[in-house]
Write a protein that binds this DNA or RNA. Structure first.
Lengths: 342, 342
DNA sequence: CGATCCAACCAAAGCGGTTTGAATGTAAGC
DNA sequence: GCTTACATTCAAACCGCTTTGGTTGGATCG
């Protein structure tokens, strides 16, 4: 059933039917009622492609997800997408996902713009001076960034306060008496990782502690990364008494290594991890397992989608930015630094 | 730059330009060359919405991802999507992701069909008698299922041989001398979980072992699920000597519980897990940590996408089905059953 | 040499909506 | 009683592409 047929059935012109359905004021209330009723009974839904062509609005938001150099897709992404996706659905938008190797990314953006297939794109995993930002600006495509670049250009973004978050976590460990604190970070090219490192370093510097570069690690955030790194640290000379992790997945590896070394997490070795509060890796228990800096990446996805739709529909005008503080949750993985062995 | 403008520049009609670009034969070779060249220099890309409207092909595949009752999104999904997404990109298709609560699912399919916004949909997480299958058939929307329902209707699907896979894993444990084997499964409503349970039961029955229903668990596959279940089992009366897990995430929880009980995995307690070979949870090491039944969910996503596109473009005609065997990988998590305590 | 064929190109009609610019009929104003 | 204003409705243009059904002019054929 298309508009023409529906209007024939009703004995009205397509114009009036279209207006009735789209809530234009110049339609008689009774007529509108009839139209809406008829549309419901006949199951009329406007053809999305025709509508898009006519309005020039794609009613779709693009997410270009680059596969990293190791071809890994971050599972955190699933939760982010879920949060954003729910909002899109409610607002009548589609989510257009494009998964491409890093090298084909720019091409992917250009194609989306030229073909007019989206109303805007979400930039994931921003880098230091992300080339995508000038590119999108030049192409005139609305965008919003999850996270921030290093430069000070103006654009819309939503991010968590990674620096303060990790500075606070580090300070907490320092207060517990820890002096050798390892950082198991994500890849330093990712800005969130860089900011976390800075936060960690801020706290150490403030406490007047000389940093040991051998305690800072940077890699894809996998369980084995946490495990092997921790194993090496704990069995090596001068092991740390505390570890700071960028992801719950890494923290699980850390935990495994600790217990395999015959040590107890929270007593012999303290661990704080960032927790994205994903549904598949809940950090729960009577008392949560891990002390963590927590922020729901799913909530972030939802909020970012909201902001973006508001921007696109000109209900607000940008650039709009939102910086979320994380919540520090105390779990069983932290405790006072053990006394130096006599 | 649109088709009209391009054709004006070239002094040709839109018809000829369109045909030249789409590879129709009735165009002079030299003319075609000129057209293609001009398109490249002016950066002409056909407006996707106009093209879609005109051809009636959405050039998009829909994935309706239902959030489960606990509002959880399976991270495995990220890898599946990545696999499918790469194939879509190469074939010029878009992926349209719709994330909706289970209750709104049917509505979501109907909307996609009525609005003509996709050329087909992928059905995720099939249930016993999945109502989506008759629905899609009735709506005349092409579809393919990742997994299988319980009924014997004909439709296209791609699945792994969950039953044989778990039967084999169980047999292996039996050969090692284990008699009390716990199964930490996914939700039984999911068909993959049900089939794994059947495989497990097949093997026990064949070995003439009376099943203990208290050893079968069914829940969302999270780390704490593995941990708490295992903890309770090991500290309870008559603990199992081996555990079979449906997911690497659950297995990590199992492993944590085991070491927390002062036991050693692979010696005191054996563990086999299914491994979807996701990039964020690699099961590696000199020897892999876990003995596992392995099958790349990402490869499955890619292959399913290929098959589906072939179906949609009528290069093959359905129903087409593909059943993959899993690979059994030996890791450090299994060993002979410990001798009963004297 | 007129008829036939073919290669190459084009005008115009969709695809299914939205939107502009009028037309119509009736109530209000003088 | 004749405008004027307003509330409704509609015809037709348009969005940018594909595709149907020609048209044109030169080569081939009998």
């Amino acid at each position: 059933m298309n508009l023409k047929e529906l209007s024939d059935v009703l004995g009205l012109s397509p114009t009036t039917v279209s207006r009735a359905l789209n809530g234009y004021p110049e339609v008689n209330a009774e007529t509108r009622r009839r139209v809406i009723e008829a549309a419901a009974t006949y199951g009329y839904v406007p053809n999305s492609m025709a509508k898009r062509l006519a309005t020039g609005r794609a009613m779709a938001i693009g997410h270009v997800v680059p596969l990293n150099e190791h071809d890994m897709i971050n599972p955190i992404f699933a939760d982010f997408i879920a949060g954003a996706g729910e909002v899109y659905s409610k607002a009548g938008y589609n989510m257009l996902l494009s998964i491409v190797p890093e090298t084909a990314e720019e091409e992917s953006y250009r194609a989306m713009v030229a073909a007019n297939s989206v109303d805007g794109v979400v930039v994931h995993g921003p880098r230091k001076d992300d080339h995508r930002i000038p590119l999108l600006r030049q192409l005139g495509m609305p965008f919003i960034v999850h996270g921030r670049t290093q430069s000070s250009e103006e654009y819309s973004w939503l991010d968590i306060n990674n620096r303060r978050s990790f500075s606070r976590a580090t300070k907490y460990l320092l207060e517990l008496g820890h002096r050798r604190i390892a950082l198991l970070n994500g890849l330093d090219a990712m800005q969130f990782a860089r900011r976390r490192r800075l936060g960690y370093q801020d706290a150490l510097t403030q406490a007047g502690i000389t940093q040991d570069p051998d305690l800072i690690f940077s890699a894809d955030m996998t369980e084995p990364y946490g495990y092997h790194t921790t194993k090496a640290l704990l069995t090596g000379p001068n092991p740390p008494t505390a570890l700071l992790s960028s992801s719950l997945i890494v923290a699980l590896g850390i935990s495994r290594a600790i217990s395999e070394c015959g040590l107890t997490m929270g007593r012999d070795v303290s661990v704080i991890t960032h927790d994205d509060a994903t549904s598949f890796l809940p950090n729960y228990g009577q008392v949560p397992l891990f002390t963590s800096t927590t922020s729901s990446v799913r909530a972030a996805g939802g909020r970012l989608a909201e902001l973006f739709i508001d921007l696109i529909e000109h209900r607000i005008d940008g650039p709009v930015t939102e910086l979320w503080e994380t919540e520090m949750v105390l779990g069983t993985s932290t405790g006072p630094a053990p006394r130096p062995q006599p």
